[in-house]
Each structure stands twice: as C-alpha cells, then as structure tokens.
Design a protein around this nucleic acid. Structure first.
Lengths: 144, 144
DNA sequence: TGTAAATAGGATAAAATTATCCGAAATAAA
DNA sequence: TTTATTTCGGATAATTTTATCCTATTTACA
C-alpha cells in the first residue's frame, strides 16, 4: 500500500512526536532503532520531512529531530505520505490508464471509488497526535 | 495500488474474456496492442496466468489465448491479482510490521481495517464477466 | 580553541521491478 | 515435409526503489 520509505517515515514521525511532547529531541540512531529501519535510508526520508517542514532538525551535538508540540495534532498522515511518495496514492488510475475519470473510466474505476475515497479520507483526517497517544498508552506498536 | 504486472494482467484477462465469448482466440500481439502494454513483458504475465489455470494458451499457428466461456463469470479479480502479485495486497501490515494483529497492532491497524476489508471484498466478489461486459457496452475502457 | 556528536548531502551499491531479446517447441496449412 | 505463425522459457538489460558509505557542516562543551 505504502512504499517502504513511507512506512519508515510514518513510524519515525510518530516516534518523534511522542518524544516532542516531553521536550525530548531524538537522534537518527534512536529513531532507526525504535522503528527498526535502516539508518542511512531513514536519514534520507527524515531530510524529506524536514524540507517539507513536517519535522524540524537541529544539527550538531545534542541535535536531533523534533516536532513543534503545538503542531502535532494538526499534522495529518496525508502530509507525510505526500512529502515522501508524492501524490502517487490517489492520483493514479487503478489500472494505470493515463486518462481515467467518470467520462472515460477504466474497468475498475467504479469498484475502486469508495475504497480510494475512504483511504483519502482516512489519510486526511488522522493526525500524528492520535497515533502517538496510542503508542504511549501501549495500544499500538512501532515495531516487530 | 497494484503492480504494473498486475495492471497489465487484469486488462489482458478482460480482453481475452471479451473475445472468448465470441469463440475468438487472441494473440499476444493483439492483446499488447489493445491494452497498451509492452509485448514481451505481457507474455511473461500471461504465462503466469496460464500456469495458474486462469487463462488457456494454444501454441502454434492460429494459437493464442482464451478462457473457457463457462469459467469467465467465476473468475474473480482476486485470483488474477494473486497469480501475479501473490498475497502482498492483503497479507502485509500497512506499516510493514512483521507481526500486526488485534493483539499487537501497528499504529494504523484500526484505521486501515475497513479499507483493507473493502478492498478484499471487492477483489473477491468482482468477476471477469462484469468487467468484460462493461467494455463491450462501451461503459469502460482498456486504454488511454 | 579543539573535539566529539549530530545532521546534510553527494556518490555509489544492492535489490526488486519492469522490460527486451532470442532460440526452442508446437501447430496449422500449403 | 516444409514453412509461417505463435507460445514458452532462459538470459539479459534498464529502471526504480531501497540501502550504504563517506565527507562536509554545524553545534555544544570541555
């Protein structure tokens, strides 16, 4: 469903958010360990998120990644996915047609409609805060 | 959502079904042209579908691909996707966790639940016949 | 001021996916 | 029986995605 890059990016963002609530900046090393992702690859993804101003980075000793506490609840999954994968997720036709719309639909256009819109809606409405809180309370997990 | 291979496979299957209703066998060349897919790559995918006994192939002059007319309505999208992409589509966790279930869910497990099940249901219930009929009646299209 | 700790970013490599090429095998028809 | 047509299958290539490595830059602190 998502690319590996996107999976890592989402998990990393949740972990950073979780720590940001406690004013704790986290290092690449700590992130990669916590979400079980390859360190160097994760670094590239975090750079993307920084460029898109979803997370913030601080260089040098005691540096690391953080998210403005007040922004966490307004960051939607959609923004993270878009920063990393672009608009691949919704943009395309299910069967790869260049033109696929109500007037010129691919064979599965109608069948996919509600699935795609539900996915879109989910990504646009779920925010980092709720995901981080579930981790904090032990309801969900970032690895294994 | 699907791999390119899967997209080509689904479109090819629909085109073959369409022709099989009129007892017409179609060649690789005709299929690739009709669904706008690379010929040699499409050949590999068709071989997969033949091995999984979803379509039938006849070698030699006047050979080509066909589907048993009586089977068309019972062939589900799910079978085609499975033959080509394996169980990647549902099997995995949305965030790539090795273990992801009700007891040990990833952060988006609940959020994805209905989307995944709707997708699963759609693939398991839509059959080749309905897709082929929509092409036949000009409601949907295989290319552009 | 020097050093250790971090992120940034370019170059490169590995793996997976997509795509092409070519000879072998099968088959219908001349 | 020969020839043209067509799928089969192995080898290879191109592209994209995933992953690694190394150096530069920044920063805190001794």
């Amino acid at each position: 469903m998502f690319s590996k890059a996107c999976e890592y990016g989402i998990k990393a963002s949740i972990f950073i958010a979780l720590n940001s609530y406690q004013e704790k900046r986290v290092s690449l090393k700590a992130i990669a360990k916590e979400v079980a992702s390859p360190e160097a690859f994760t670094a590239k993804i975090l750079q993307d998120l920084v460029r898109h101003e979803i997370i913030n980075s601080v260089k040098g000793a005691h540096g690391g990644f953080e998210i403005d506490k007040n922004k966490i609840s307004s960051i939607k999954l959609e923004q993270i996915v878009y920063a990393i994968d672009g608009n691949k997720i919704y943009s395309g036709c299910g069967l790869g047609l260049e033109i696929c719309n109500e007037l010129h639909p691919c064979p599965v256009h109608e069948k996919f409609k509600s699935i795609r819109s539900e996915l879109k809606n989910m990504l646009e409405t779920t925010n980092l805060e709720e995901l981080a809180l579930d981790i904090k309370s032990g309801i969900s997990f970032l690895k294994i």
